[in-house]
Write a protein that binds this DNA or RNA. Sequence first.
RNA 1: GCUGGUGUAGCUCAGUUGGUAGAGCAGCUGAUUUGUAAUCAGCAGGUCGCCGGUUCGAGUCCGGCCCCCAGCUCCA
Length: 643
Amino acid sequence: MQITLKDGNSISVEAGKTLLDVAESISGGLARAALAARVDGKVTDLLYKPDADCALEILTFDDPDGRHALRHTASHVMAQAVKRLYPTAKLAIGPAIEDGFYYDFDVETPFSSPDLEKIEAEMSRIVKEKLPVERFELPRDEALDLVAKQGEPYKTELINDLPEDAVISFYKQGEFTDLCAGPHIPDTGRIKAFKLLSTTGAYWRGDSTKKVLCRIYGTAFTKKDDLNAYIEALEEARRRDHNRIGRELEFFTTTDYIGQGLPILMPKGAKVLQILQRFVEDEEDRRGYLLTKTPFMAKRDLYKISGHWQHYREGMFIMGDPDGEGEVFALRPMTCPFQFQVYLSKTRSYRDLPMRFNETSTLFRNEASGEMHGLIRVRQFTISEGHLACLPEQLEEEFRGCVDLAMYMLRACGLDSDVSFRFSKWDPANTDKYIGSAEQWDSVQALMKQILDGLELDYTESEGEAAFYGPKLDIQIRNVFGKEDTLITIQVDFQLAERFGMEYVDRDNSKKHPYIIHRTSIGCYERTLALLIEKYAGALPLWLAPVQAVVLPITDRTHGAASDLRDRLRRLGYRVDVDLRSEKIGYKIREAQNQKIPYMLVLGDKEAESGEIAVRSRADGDIGSMTVDEFIQKLGEQSRPPV
RNA sequence: GCUGGUGUAGCUCAGUUGGUAGAGCAGCUGAUUUGUAAUCAGCAGGUCGCCGGUUCGAGUCCGGCCCCCAGCUCCA
């Protein structure tokens, strides 16, 4: 038969040869580096024997699917090692993930780090054994027999959940056989560099009502150097962690007495938030938004109308017995029902629309205790909140305007190339979580999809991520550890206007409900600050830096001139400090540099005489002397956001 | 909320088999007047996360709670 290769050439192959044999016939080097193959676009094992003409691509570690196969096999090797060392461990699932793999085990006592060392050592033995990884398929009843004989109840459950017509495949390496769809690499010897990274609990099937299993995370590479580079990158990420440098640089702190998820913003962090908030509010002003300031709490009656009482009660801080008589208040988890009251305060005409309300809004959400993380996930936060009421024919343009504003903010912060877009839809299988009918959801989601496609955004779709009242466009970003969070969200709401009785009088004198867009422009300020700190490793761009320059007198003879310079720059609106301590200039520079202050202005006798200052930048070191006016011009050029 | 890890000076961390707590940095005082990433000396600093238990005696052992970290679940 004829096999067409990636380069367009084709070779003829006898029946019964494996893809690995084909790779060998192309080149020995390719065969040694090969991990998996793509046959007619479908990823396959190298031990697969083609039986018809096909297009073939041999996959190495450079291909994501090749990496995936290597790490998937590494997870099987880990499971095999665990079964050798702990025969009573029950196997759950063990996939490859973005940077590695994991396997979930049901064990009496969870694994600890000495266990991981033992498992790693056993894995090394399995790799040395160079066991071939062979695939076979079984009919459903035989497959169930096999896993029953193995004593693997989780595998039984997995098989029972497979669709009627599913092919049930197993992979066998030495004494170890695992239910698995594959693909896998041809033998365990190809796992040249691997490491087990951590152990943690994880729910069976991701369901918090089900049993907690013990998950071991690891990663695998084909070269030791690549593994070392990966571990080095992990350490570098830890050095950028906002939760670490945000505290070191005194942006924020926490205390045991205040409570979880309630960070204290220190002068520097508070300053950055103030700069961001002013920037956002000013820009929204220019875009026709109407600023509101609404209460932080309300009676439960308000939340009953909005649906929060029924759908979000767990997440709210409630004052008093929620089911008791009399007045019960709750802190607001969202601004919507409050800002709606502004709309409702008088009769609105179609001529009034669109109306765009914004608010720098503090919200309170009672997150579960294990979910807090630095400034990224907290219980009280401030969001660049906004709600737009518009006519159906205005929806697309207003939505577009919200996306444009969000992108403007991301560009200003330098985060625009770090985000991805997610169209978050409801889960039709879990209607309890949402309000409204399937027809309503289908129609508004179709409408939103049309708008998104019109915007030519590169987005993914995700079921079950919608708000309880409508679908969302989420702008997602990853933190320094790779964990994804929503930075900005823009939501189309077709239901709350009706619930709240929000109406406008149309041209024909009839009353209609407007569409509502819920949106943020820069997201939640605390989270945005956290991501900025991580993005810039604490060295925020000049326009955001809490201290933009520090004046460093060399001796106390220039203390007066240094203080005068600081005052002059401050009067111009720049954030400038002076370091009057009796320390050597090298010491003062070291400290300013560690504080990531953009400019250090060295002022000694020489400068006092010449009227210039010696300027040092945190990025480029000593950049020479200049007059104060020249420096002011330099500051001016850099002190606006890049939009 | 769940699983695991952790908690000792402002910060980073030592602290042996249970015998009464230590370093570096930061701070304070003094000296030094310094030219582009750490000047020297001295001083002070602790309810060993909190509460309870075992013990003649607990930072160390046991129990409960709290906080912090990673992951799961959840979410801006």
